[in-house]
Each structure stands twice: as C-alpha cells, then as structure tokens.
Design a protein around this nucleic acid. Structure first.
Length: 586
RNA sequence: GGGGCCGUAGUUCAGUCGGUUAGAAUGCCUGACUGUCGAUCAGGAGGUCGCGAGUUCGAGUCUCGUCGGCCCCGCCA
C-alpha cells in the first residue's frame, strides 16, 4: 500500500515564509483537542510540532475523519499554511505564529494508548521508559541527546582526519588476556572448548598498528567489560581510541587540547583555556582526595596531622602512631547543618571505611565533640590552620591515608552539591605522574593503568628494587570530576616489556604464551608510540548535562545488565548449546 | 559479594495502630462544546496492592523468602 500524500516539509521547519503555500507534512499526533466544531491537532516529527486545524465548514469530510484521531497515530496531511488569528499565537512553539488548515488527510497507522506522553518532562520510572524505549526515544530530549552524540562523533572524525589520522577497525572477537576486567566470553563452534573474548579495548591491536607503521590511528569503538554497572558504567561502552607513533606526552596533550577546544567551540560555543591544568596524581589525592577531582569548586582537603595536641584524642593518637593522616575540610557558612545532617554525613564516611567523623562549628561558642577531649589551644590551632571564620564548619577524619582521601573526597563532592557550590561550566585537567604499579587487596603488585605503560626513563633503575616508587608515563583527562579519558606512552622495547611483565608475576614462559605476539612485534622495530582513549558516553553525558550515560545511549542495559526492551540475556536451546560444545551447570 | 531507597489503576503517587466496598491526580472511554494549545464541562470504566509462604478471626499494612528497578561500596588493566 503506497502513501498517497508525499511529504514536502518537516513539521518544525514550517514558518511564515511558507504562508499560503500548500504543503504536506507527516508525523505523530502529539495532542488532540476537539472543540465540537474545530479540531486542533499538534502534529510532531523529529523537527518539532505544527498545529493542524480541521474546520468542518471548510472541509467537512476530512474533519469528520479527524474526530477518530488519537495521540500516537501516524498521519500525513496536506493543507494551506496560514497565520493564526490574532490573540491565538503560541509563543512556546517555534511554529506558534502559523498553523496548517488541513484539506486532505491519510491515516498511515493507528496506535494503542501510549504508556506515557511524548513530552520532555515526564514523570515515569526508568523501568517503563526502557521497556518502551522506542517511545522514550521519540521524545524531543532524547532525540536531542542522540543528535548531540552524533555531532560530537562527527566533529572528532573531522578533526582527526585533518590531523592525518585514519580510522581502522580491529576485531571484537579476540583472545582473552589475563589482566583486567572480566571478559565476555564467546564460545567457538569450530574450536570445541575454546573461547574468544569480546575486546575490553583495542589496546594491543592498536599497538600492532603502530608497529605496522600507520603512525596515527583512531577508532570509535565498542568496548566490553563484564563488571557491575553504575550510572556512568555500562557493560558495552563506546570509546574514542587513538594511538600515535614518534610522540611524547607533550604531543598528546597538545593534540587533545586542540581537539577538545574544537569540540567545545562547535558544540557549546565556548573557548576553552589551554593548556589545561596538570595536577600530579599525588597532589590530587592530597588536595581533593580523588584522582578525578572536580575543580568547579574549592573545598580543598587540609592536612592537620602535625598540629600539637591532637594526640590527646586516642583515635588520633593511634592514627599518628601508625603513620596515618588527619585531615579536614572547611565548609563556608556551614553552621546551618542540623543534627540529622551530621548523622547522615557520619554514615557516609563510615560506609566508606572511616571509623568516624569529627566536626567543629566555628562560632562564638564552639560546638564540637572534640571540645571535651582536646585543649582549647589545639582546637584554635585547627581553626587557624584551616583558615576558618565564624560561621564555617570543619569536618575532620583521621585514618589510613587512603581512607581519609576516600572519605573526605566523597564528603567534598556531597557538601558541594548540598551547599550549591558547583559553578556551571567545564573544568578540564590532566592528572599526570601516576604510579606505574599499585597493590591490590591481597597485596599483589598490579598495573595502575595497564602492563604496556612505559615507566618514566629515570625510574627504570627502580623497577627491580622498589617498583612501587616507579612513575608511569600515563595521563588521565578529567572533566568536571569525571574521568573521561586516559592513556600512556607505551613500552616499545621488548626487554623492558618483559621486565614489567616479570615484576607483575608473569614469568617469561607465561608472558610468551599470553603476550608472545606483542613481545615478538616489539622485537621487529616497534617505533616509540603512545595514545589515549576516551569514554564517549561520559563525554556526551557531560555535554548534554545528563547524570547517567543511559540518557545518551539509545538502548542501554539495566543495572543487572539486562535489556528491558528485548529481554536479553535469555536462555538458548539445547541444540545451540550442543553445537557450541557447552553444557549449562544448574 | 555487601549497604541503602523503591515496587498499590495505563502513569505518578497517597493509604493512619492490622479492621467495612483500596483512594487522588493524570491518562483512557462516552457525550457536549467553533480558536484551543496542561482546552473546558458532564458522566463512566479501570486493581493478581510485584510474586510465594507465614503470623492473625482478619494482611496493601507485620515476618520470612523471592523477583524486578535505581543509587552506592567492592569490582571496573
């Protein structure tokens, strides 16, 4: 069945220039208002909304058919564009000065009653939205988010193309490597008992491309990790992956700063200040309690461990003895905090591993649980060290360095939100000088970034005796407190790569088995190279002002990794399992 | 693996100390209405209180289990 009426315009594109023209538009009935005589229909497509008028005196037949229209129906209408009568202009609509007097109508499809209205501000659970994602995506807001996503990707491609990069696809079905996140495994029908892993990132492939001499590679690529989900983490996420040969850190910083300046200029009309600030990992942890600090507000952490008299508090005494830290954070004008607030804050830090939270209300009569324990002089010392004034509140945590950072870093973010301290705008910065290794919970040495990251030249002699002191040639890009990218200069000498794998407890035999192809490639004249990868979902989320990456992904997964629209994952048939040489354990 | 919040009409929610026939708003249906745009007015329909078990004379309400959604910790080279 062909469509009789062919579209000539998009609904939202019509304006006064089209006055008196006969036009045909198509779209969905967004709103239906029947006044007994005249009927108004708001017809919408991806471009916007136009008001249709069905007048029984002018076009009786089409008016009577219009009476059956309902929200969500799909129609094509032909009519004349007219000015709205004076006093009936709708300033809320882009097309609010005009309307379409309908002469012909074709009903292209009907619709069941919609589970929620197709509007920007809807009050509906995410569960329902995801179940009917195709309706959710019909909303202007979601259309805008996905359009923005496309525009960002397009800008990236344009920019990198001009800079001499080419986009090369790498396999999704790859070898499972031991390090890192859990793999999604894919059974191999042709190789019984063997599995592919969906790539967590094209890391090794892109290094191979550098060995191959492509020099400047990028890819907009899906990456898979079988780990638990968060508001900013999905099991499949999209990455802008890049790698360059014959470069050092400065080359990467310059290129990326230029790229972001370009993107922000085009998307937001903002000129970013370059170079972006660079903060050493150590310093970020010290000042913000985070390796991805949000610099849109201050609230810095201050170390007060050295203040005389703190040891009179047993808890602090213990902390000092064990080489821990006592640090504080100052909330300007915080004295309005209630007992209930304090309880909530305490609960926050204890859930992060701290044993407790102390506070000092700086006012005429100082209010603090430390009043009875510490001397007046010590408390004054703290207030002075923190630079607090009357009306401020200080929060203090004493514990192991990592716990203090985590507790106060979290408090910092929470308090900034609570006291509305977060300014609008975009704060980009580099975090540099990461340690090459760290210890996991079982005390094993693991790479902070990944095992192919190059140590700093001057630290190479330290690799053997004190690997924990070795700094990496790695860098992260942070935007408004969100890690949006990270990368490193890679190891391009086989010997050093073997040494690093060794330190990680992967002996030569195992290294050769699992990473033999990499080691071999490095031994065939691998050029010095490095790169970076960006979380595209997070970037677009921040650019669109959303608080979850699910708002910028067309078909996201729930927190349990399921798709409410298609009901994936699902059981498969015995035959399928049989063919794959698999048996499901009950 | 753990902590927190939540699940009642299509949707968003209320539901007192465990007590009669589970309510509201909105949406939906029918009718009226010629300038609305959150249309208005009148009438009406609509419920597996997520599911299962238990306590009780009696459970939306209490207990246990289970399923599902969201936030967080762990995890995320």
């Amino acid at each position: 069945m062909g469509t009789l009426l062919r579209r000539t315009h998009l609904c939202g594109d019509l304006d006064e220039e089209n006055l008196n023209q006969k036009v045909t538009v198509t779209g969905w009935v967004r709103k239906y208002r029947d006044h007994g005589g005249v009927i108004f229909v708001d017809l919408g497509d991806k471009s916007g909304v136009i008001q249709l008028v069905f007048n029984p005196q002018l076009h009786k037949e089409v008016h009577s058919r219009a009476r059956s229209l309902r929200e969500g129906w799909v129609i094509a209408v032909k009519g004349r564009v007219t000015l709205r009568p004076s006093g009936t202009v709708n300033p809320k609509l882009k097309t609010g000065k005009i309307e379409l007097m309908v002469e012909k109508m074709e009903i292209l499809n009907v619709s069941r009653v919609l589970p929620f209205p197709i509007e920007n501000e809807i009050q509906v659970s995410e569960e329902v939205r995801l179940k009917y994602r195709y309706l959710d995506l019909r909303r202007e807001k979601m259309q805008k988010n996905l359009l923005l996503r496309y525009q960002v990707i397009k800008l990236i491609r344009d920019f990198l193309d001009k800079k001499g990069f080419i986009e090369i696809e790498t396999p999704f079905l790859a070898r499972s490597t031991p390090e890192g996140a859990r793999d999604y495994l894919v059974p191999s029908r042709l190789n019984p008992g063997e599995f592919y892993a969906l790539t967590q990132s094209p890391q090794l492939f892109k290094q191979m491309l550098m060995v191959a001499g492509f020099d400047r590679y990028f890819q907009i690529v899906r990456c898979f990790r079988d780990e638990d989900l968060r508001a900013d983490r999905q099991p499949e996420h999209t990455q802008l992956d890049m790698e360059l040969s014959f470069v050092e850190e400065e080359d990467i910083y310059n290129l990326i700063e230029e790229m972001f300046t370009f993107i922000f200029e085009k998307i937001q009309g903002i000129t970013l200040q370059t170079p972006f600030p660079r903060i050493k990992y150590e310093e970020a942890m010290e000042r913000y309690g985070s390796d991805k600090p949000d610099l849109r507000f201050d609230l810095e952490l201050k170390n007060i461990t050295h203040i005389q008299g703190l040891e009179r508090f047993k808890v602090f005494q213990n902390v000092i003895k064990k080489g821990g830290q006592i640090k504080g954070i100052k909330v300007p004008e915080g004295v309005s905090l209630s007992r209930k607030d304090l309880e909530e804050l305490t609960q926050r830090v204890t859930s992060l591993g701290a044993k407790g939270l102390c506070w000092i209300f700086v006012q005429k009569e100082i209010k603090s649980p430390l009043n009875k324990i510490l001397s007046e002089e010590t408390i004054k010392g703290i207030i002075k060290e923190m630079g607090a004034r009357e009306g401020d509140v200080l929060f203090i945590v004493g514990d192991k360095k990592e716990i203090v950072a985590k507790a106060l870093g979290n408090l910092r973010l929470y308090l900034a939100t609570k006291f509305n301290l977060i300014t609008s705008g975009y704060k980009l910065l580099w975090i540099i000088d990461f340690p090459l290794f760290e210890y996991d919970t079982e005390g094993n040495l693991i790479p902070s970034h990944h095992p192919f990251t190059s140590p700093k030249d001057e630290d190479i002699p330290l690799l053997k005796e004190s690997p924990e002191k070795v700094k990496a040639r790695a860098y992260d890009l942070v935007l408004n407190g969100e890690e949006i990218g990270g990368g490193s200069i890679r190891i391009h000498h086989r010997g050093i790569q073997e040494k690093v794998l060794n330190i990680l407890g992967i002996d030569s035999l195992e290294a050769r088995e699992k990473f033999g192809f990499l080691l071999e490639a490095l031994s065939f004249g691998a050029p010095p190279h490095g790169g970076i990868a960006f979380g595209l979902d997070r970037l677009v989320m921040l650019l669109s002002g959303e608080e979850s990456i699910r708002e910028v992904i067309a078909f996201p997964k729930t927190q349990k990794g399921t798709c409410l629209l298609t009901d994936a994952p699902s059981k498969v048939t015995e035959e399928q399992l049989e063919e794959l040489h698999l048996k499901v354990k009950e």
